[in-house]
């Protein structure tokens, strides 16, 4: 095992960006408050001092403009990292990020790619109300041409961010404001990368598979601990990337456990969760003891009130209920 250091989630992302910027001058960071303010959520703390204002660039509040601008720069060969203060704000940049970035390579017949990373906070949980609480993976996973990364630990955040920056395709990197202060051991080393499309089994188990990504992975771990007391053994899979999707890892697990509960903090209708469910029903039809169960955000706009928001999101209680139901223990 190589050496590790304990880092906050936000610093793991910062270290990944800084290391890649030292390695490759084509990499630059652009977004609202990323430079002089040191990042609205302090993710880019210290980067302006190290790299200067030509490579760590403050923009006005102008998502459509700077997202499109960064895409133009990527077409010419730069490798921009674009921070959206929140992915909720990316919706005003829908045309550049969905119509330009993922389609440029295809539309140009392979002539112009778009090596760009869009990153920022995703998901509810901070009582920000309906407009600021999007889980955009529900929307954006529908679009081919994008890679979607949703890390759940500081170590993954760093390794996946480095892969994202070196990747030649547009990558949407979804962080969670709720998790930025979370600490964890992160491997030291400039070339410690985490590959896309490789899910990780966070906990082994025999009775039910829990598949999730990002923040709800931690709720799954809590649920697994609680269910163990009831004698239900859960296997927790952290997908880490939605596109590419490591369906094989879930498939192998389901062949072992015969049960699947998917935990997805986006809405259920046309979501990564529904896609995984459809694929597993197709691949594991004869292996399943029950239909695939899903725990999503409730199908309503995100509420403000603390208790309502907690009930709106996937949580440990709901996951436990779903597992009991799936395993005929309810």
């Amino acid at each position: 095992m190589s050496a590790t250091q304990e880092l906050e989630f936000r610093d793991a992302i910062r270290d990944a960006m800084s290391e890649e910027m030292r390695r490759d001058k084509r990499v630059m960071l652009i977004g609202e408050e990323v430079a002089e303010y040191n990042g609205a959520y302090k993710v880019s703390r210290g980067m302006l001092d190290e790299f200067g204002p030509r490579r760590v660039i403050d923009t006005p509040i102008s998502e459509s403009g700077f997202a499109g601008m960064a895409i133009g720069a990527a077409m010419l060969g730069l490798r921009p990292v674009v921070e959206f203060m929140s992915w909720s704000f990316s919706l005003v940049a829908a045309d550049p990020i969905l119509n330009n970035a993922p389609k440029m390579l295809f539309m140009s017949g392979g002539q112009f790619g778009c090596p760009i990373v869009f990153r920022g906070n995703d998901g509810a949980g901070g009582q920000l109300g309906s407009t600021h609480s999007w889980s955009v993976e529900g929307l954006f996973s529908n679009v081919p041409g994008i890679k979607i990364v949703i890390p759940s630990t500081p170590a993954d955040a760093k390794g996946l961010m480095k892969t994202a920056i070196r990747d030649d395709d547009p990558v949407f990197f979804l962080e969670s404001e709720r998790m930025l202060g979370m600490k964890g051991d992160v491997p030291v080393g400039e070339d410690v990368l985490v590959k896309f499309g490789q899910a990780l089994i966070r906990r082994e188990g025999a009775d039910c598979t829990l598949a999730s990504w990002g923040r709800p992975v931690h709720f799954c771990m809590e649920a697994a601990q609680e269910l163990a007391k009831e004698g239900i053994s859960c296997e927790v899979i952290d997908l880490r990337t939605i596109r590419p999707l490591d369906i094989g890892c879930i498939e192998r697990s389901v062949r072992k456990t015969s049960n699947l509960v998917i935990v997805d903090q986006s809405w259920s209708f046309g979501s990564p969760g529904s896609e995984v469910a459809a694929q597993i029903h197709q691949r594991c039809f004869d292996d399943l003891d029950n239909h695939v169960h899903r725990v999503h955000a409730e199908d309503v706009p995100a509420p403000y009130a603390y208790n309502l928001e907690q009930e709106y999101l996937p949580n440990t209680r709901k996951i436990c209920e779903a597992v009991r139901s799936a395993t005929y223990n309810s």
Binding site: M28, R54, S64, G65, F66, A67, G68, M69, A70, I71, G72, A73, A74, M75, L76, G77, L78, P96, N100
Partner: peptide
């Protein structure tokens, strides 16, 4: 139009 700004950004940056 933002793409044009970005192309100019990239040539100048390079």
């Amino acid at each position: 139009t933002p793409l044009g700004a970005g192309l100019a950004f990239a040539t100048k940056y390079e």
